[in-house]
Design a protein around this nucleic acid. Structure first.
Length: 574
DNA sequence: TGGGCCGGCGCG
DNA sequence: AAAGCGCGCCGGCCCA
C-alpha cells in the first residue's frame, strides 16, 4: 500500500514471498479500500511506516490485523548488519538496493510539525507535507527485506512482532489511557495547595521554600530548585556535600534536610505531572501519549511526550476505569532473570525459574554461613542476579557473584560472554536478532590508544566531578561497554518477549471485542474492559504470556508468570 | 531570547 | 539502601 498526497493511494496484491500477485491499482478513498479488503481477507499490509499511516486510518475508524512496517524492519536489518543509524526510509532502502546516493531520513514527525508550524496553519501540516509513497519502491524493498529476513534465524518473528508493535502503539495513542482529570486535580490540591495563577509556586511549595531559607539563617534566600544554591548554603553552614541528591542529603544532619526532601518530591510532581501536564495531555478523560516503537536500542519503547513511561506511582489513582468497566493490570514477574534463565539454558537455574518466586527458589544456594551483611537469602539471590545482569559487583556483591558462578555456571557464563564481546568491540544480539549499536568512534579511539596507566599522555582529562559519566580512561570505557552489552542481551530479549506478548494479546482482545489495550510499559500492560469480561481478559493475558514463551524459547522449563489484578483504578493494583 | 548542557529524579 | 543497565523531562544556568 502506498499513500498518496491526499486521501487516495495505490495498492498491489503480493504473494507471501513478496512477488506481485496481481496488477497495481489506484483508489481515491484509501481508508475505505483498506477497510473493505480487511473485511474480506485481512491481508498483511505492507506499508512504509505505520507510525505515519495508521493513526490516519484509526481516525477514519479503520483497524487492521497485521502489517509489515518497512521502516521498522529496515532499521532492524541495518542494525543486524552493523549499520546502526543509517537512513531507514523506503527511499533510502531503495537507493541502497540500486547503489544510488542514499537520502537522509526526514526529521521525526513531531519535530517536523513544530518546525513547520509557522508555515501551515493547522494540525495536519505534518501529514500533508509528507511526500506520497512510491508503490514500486515499496514492493521492491519489501521483497528485498523478505529475502534478508529468510536468512536470519528468528528474524521473521522479530519483524512481525516489531510491526505488530507499531499497530499497538498507534492504537494506544488513539484510544488513550482512561484518566480522571478531577482525581488528578484533587490529588495535586491535596499535596500542593490550590492551583496557583500565573507562574507562581503552589502554596505548599512556597511555604517549604520559605522555611528552607529560614533554616539556613534569618533573611536567607535559597532557591530550592537550584542545586548550586543548595550546595553553597550547606557549605556556608560548614556541611560541604558533593551533590544535592536525595540519598546524599539523607545522611546530613541539618534542619533544612527534611524540608528539602519534601520540597524536591512535591516540586517534581508539580513540574513533571502538575496542572500544566494535565492541561496538555488529558482530553475527554483520556491520556494520549505518543509511543515510539524501537525508540530504545534494546527494543523497548520510548515516548515523544507526556512521559507515559514515567507516570509516578502516586498519580496512579487518577487512572480510573469507565463506569461498568474495569482495568486488568498485568505485569510479568521477575522478567529479566527468567529471560536469562531461558537464554542460558542453565539447567539448575531454569529449574528454579520453573514456577513461583524465582529469587526464593534460588535462595538455598545463597544460604551460606559466611553470611554477607544482614541480607536474607532471598535478598542475596536477587542482588547476585542484578549484579550479574547489570555488571555491578562491588562490596558484598562480589562474594554473591562467586556463589552464582559456582552454582549456576551457564547463566553466569552467558552474561560474562556478552560482556567480553562488548569489551572487544563486538556486537551482541537479542534472541530474535535485535542488535546493539557498535561502539562510537570515540570509544574505539580511547580503547585502542593503549593502556593509559602506562601512558599518562594518552589519559583523558582529570577525573570528572562527581556524577559525570564520560569514561576518562580506556579501562573505564571498556568496562562501561561490557556492562552495556552484558545487559543488552537480557534487556533486549525481554523486549522481544514483551513484543510477542503484545502481538498475541492484541489478537486475542480483538476476538473478545470491546476490551482495549490502553497501557504498555516494558513488562506491564493494562487492558480497559467491560467488567463482565475481566476473567476472559485475564485468561487472554495468561495465554499470551505462554504463547510468547513458546515462540521465543520453545520447550524451556522456565515459566513466565503474570501477576494480574482486576481493579477500578490503577493505584489499587499493587 | 533560544539552544543546549547539567543535575536531579520519575519509570522499568 | 544502593548500585550495576535502559530511558524522558524538568528547571537552572550559561552562551550566542
Amino acid at each position: 500500500m502506498a499513500a498518496g498526497a491526499g486521501d487516495g493511494g495505490e495498492l498491489r496484491p503480493l504473494a507471501e514471498d513478496g512477488t506481485p500477485a496481481g496488477p497495481a491499482y489506484a483508489v481515491a478513498d484509501l481508508a475505505g479500500e483498506i477497510a473493505a479488503r480487511e473485511r474480506e481477507a485481512a491481508p498483511r499490509w505492507v506499508w512504509a511506516s505505520g507510525a505515519r499511516l495508521y493513526p490516519r486510518l484509526l481516525r477514519a475508524g479503520v483497524r487492521v490485523a497485521r502489517c509489515h512496517d518497512l521502516e521498522l524492519v529496515e532499521n532492524l536489518l541495518l542494525g543486524h548488519a552493523g549499520r546502526y543509524g543509517e537512513p531507514r526510509s523506503v527511499a533510502a532502502a531503495w537507493a541502497r538496493l540500486h547503489g544510488r546516493p542514499v537520502p537522509p531520513d526526514p526529521p521525526p514527525a513531531h519535530e517536523a510539525a513544530s518546525a513547520q508550524a509557522p508555515l501551515f496553519g493547522d494540525d495536519d501540516a505534518g501529514e500533508r507535507a509528507a511526500p506520497s509513497d512510491d508503490l514500486g519502491r515499496i514492493v521492491e524493498v519489501h521483497a528485498a527485506q523478505q529475502r534478508a529476513i529468510a536468512g536470519l534465524d528468528g528474524f521473521a518473528l522479530l519483524a512481525a512482532a516489531e510491526s505488530a508493535g507499531s499497530l499497538v502503539a498507534a492504537e494506544l495513542g488513539h484510544d488513550g489511557l482512561p484518566w480522571s482529570a478531577a482525581e488528578h486535580d484533587a490529588l495535586l490540591t491535596e499535596l500542593l495547595g490550590p492551583r496557583p495563577s500565573g507562574g507562581l509556586r503552589p502554596r505548599r511549595l512556597q511555604e517549604l521554600a520559605d522555611r528552607i531559607g529560614a533554616a539556613f539563617g534569618p533573611r536567607t534566600h535559597v532557591n530550592p530548585d537550584s542545586p548550586a544554591q543548595i550546595l553553597k548554603a550547606f557549605a556556608a553552614a560548614g556541611l560541604p556535600i558533593p551533590s544535592t541528591r536525595a540519598h546524599v542529603l539523607k545522611r546530613v544532619d541539618h534542619p533544612a534536610v527534611p524540608l528539602l526532601l519534601e520540597y524536591k518530591e512535591l516540586a517534581r510532581l508539580h513540574a513533571a505531572h502538575g496542572w500544566a501536564w494535565l492541561d496538555t495531555w488529558v482530553r475527554d478523560g483520556r491520556f494520549r501519549p505518543e509511543y515510539v516503537v524501537g525508540g530504545v536500542v534494546s527494543g523497548r519503547w520510548a515516548t515523544n511526550g507526556g512521559g507515559a513511561l514515567q507516570i509516578p506511582r502516586v498519580l496512579r489513582r487518577a487512572v480510573v476505569a469507565d463506569p461498568g468497566w474495569c482495568l486488568v493490570v498485568a505485569d510479568a514477574a521477575q522478567l529479566e532473570p527468567r529471560v536469562l534463565a531461558a537464554l542460558a539454558g542453565d539447567r539448575a537455574f531454569a529449574d528454579a525459574a520453573a514456577h513461583g518466586d524465582l529469587y526464593e527458589a534460588l535462595s538455598d544456594a545463597f544460604r551460606s554461613d559466611e553470611a554477607t551483611g544482614g541480607l536474607s537469602a532471598r535478598a542475596k539471590a536477587k542482588l547476585a542476579l542484578l549484579s550479574a545482569m547489570y555488571g555491578g559487583g562491588t562490596g558484598e556483591a562480589v562474594q554473591l557473584l562467586g556463589v552464582l558462578k559456582s552454582r549456576f555456571p551457564d547463566a553466569f557464563e552467558y552474561v560474562e560472554a556478552a560482556a567480553r564481546a562488548g569489551e572487544r568491540g563486538r556486537l551482541v544480539r537479542s534472541l530474535l536478532g535485535r542488535t546493539c549499536p557498535p561502539p562510537s568512534a570515540g570509544w574505539r579511539e580511547l580503547t585502542l590508544a593503549g593502556d593509559d596507566e602506562r601512558d599518562p599522555g594518552q589519559a583523558a582529562p582529570a577525573a570528572p566531578p562527581d556524577g559525570a559519566r564520560r569514561p576518562a580512561t580506556a579501562a573505564q570505557a571498556l568496562r562501561s561497554r561490557g556492562r552495556f552489552t552484558r545487559n543488552f542481551v537480557v534487556q533486549a530479549t525481554a523486549a522481544d518477549w514483551a513484543l510477542a506478548l503484545l502481538g498475541s494479546l492484541r489478537r486475542r482482545l480483538t476476538a473478545l471485542g470491546p476490551p482495549r489495550l490502553v497501557f504498555f510499559q516494558h513488562d506491564e500492560v493494562i487492558v480497559h474492559a467491560p467488567a463482565e469480561l475481566a476473567e476472559a481478559v485475564s485468561e487472554a493475558v495468561r495465554a499470551s504470556a505462554e504463547e510468547a514463551r513458546r515462540l521465543l524459547f520453545g520447550a524451556t522449563p522456565v515459566a513466565f508468570p503474570m501477576e494480574i489484578a482486576v481493579v477500578d483504578r490503577y493505584a489499587d493494583a499493587k
